[in-house]
Simulated assay, not measured.
Amino acid sequence: MDTAMSAPVSKVFLVDDAAEVRRRLARLLALIPGVVIAGESGGGERAFEIIVASQADVAVLDPCFGGRTNLVLIQALSRARPSIVSIVLTNHCASACRRACEAAGADFFFDKTAEFTLACRAVETIVNARRARSA
């Protein structure tokens, strides 16, 4: 049996109000073996439902849009779907925002300006760990 074909796929869902950021993330994450982009959202009230329906394993999200921080999505994912790894990637990197995201249940927090590549590496590490567990 071909191990590449039997390797588990990790579904990643992207939430950011900037379409260009979602496109850039999708391009970079698609280069990681075993990653499939499960979907995208510009945010909003239905993001939780869409993420759950996509059966995502990882959600890369920016909870800051419309001039305010919306922690409801992180909280909902953390409570209802704790198996989904929540990775915050945002320009709002003040320590208060970081603490609020972590308190809401975010698994990882990255600065969109300085740590974009690190966020992608975190996804790669998660995917590789998942693959190793199922081997």
Score class of each variant (00 low, 15 high):
Thr3Tyr: 07
Met5Phe: 15
Met5Leu: 13
Ala7Tyr: 13
Val9Thr: 15
Val9Ser: 06
Val12His: 00
Val12Thr: 01
Phe13Cys: 01
Leu14Thr: 01
Leu14Asn: 00
Leu14Ile: 10
Leu14Gly: 03
Glu20Arg: 05
Val21Leu: 01
Val21Met: 03
Leu25Asp: 03
Ala26Met: 12
Ala26Val: 06
Ala26Asp: 09
Arg27Pro: 00
Arg27Gly: 01
Leu28Glu: 12
Leu28Met: 12
Leu31Ser: 09
Leu31Cys: 08
Gly34Phe: 07
Val35Ile: 02
Val35Gly: 00
Ala38Leu: 03
Gly39Met: 02
Gly39Ile: 14
Gly43Val: 13
Gly44Ala: 07
Glu45Ile: 04
Glu45Cys: 04
Ala47Phe: 02
Phe48Cys: 03
Ile51Tyr: 04
Ile51Asp: 00
Val52Trp: 08
Ser54Asp: 04
Val58Ile: 15
Val58Gly: 00
Ala59Tyr: 03
Ala59Glu: 06
Ala59Pro: 05
Leu61Cys: 14
Asp62Val: 04
Asp62Ile: 10
Pro63Gly: 11
Gly66Phe: 09
Gly66Thr: 07
Gly67Val: 08
Gly67Arg: 13
Gly67Lys: 10
Thr69Val: 07
Asn70Ile: 09
Val72Phe: 10
Ile74Gln: 00
Ile74Trp: 02
Gln75His: 11
Ser78Asp: 10
Ser78Gln: 08
Arg79Pro: 01
Ala80His: 13
Ala80Tyr: 14
Ala80Lys: 15
Pro82Tyr: 04
Pro82His: 11
Leu89Asp: 00
Leu89Lys: 02
Asn91Leu: 10
Asn91Trp: 14
Cys93Met: 02
Cys93Gln: 06
Cys93Pro: 00
Ala94Cys: 05
Cys97Gly: 05
Ala103Ser: 13
Ala103Lys: 12
Ala104Met: 06
Ala104Ile: 05
Ala106Cys: 12
Phe108Ser: 02
Phe109Ser: 06
Glu115His: 06
Glu115Phe: 03
Glu115Asp: 11
Thr117Phe: 13
Cys120Trp: 03
Arg121Met: 09
Arg121Trp: 07
Thr125Arg: 14
Ile126Ala: 03
Ile126Tyr: 07
Arg130Asn: 14
Ala135Tyr: 08
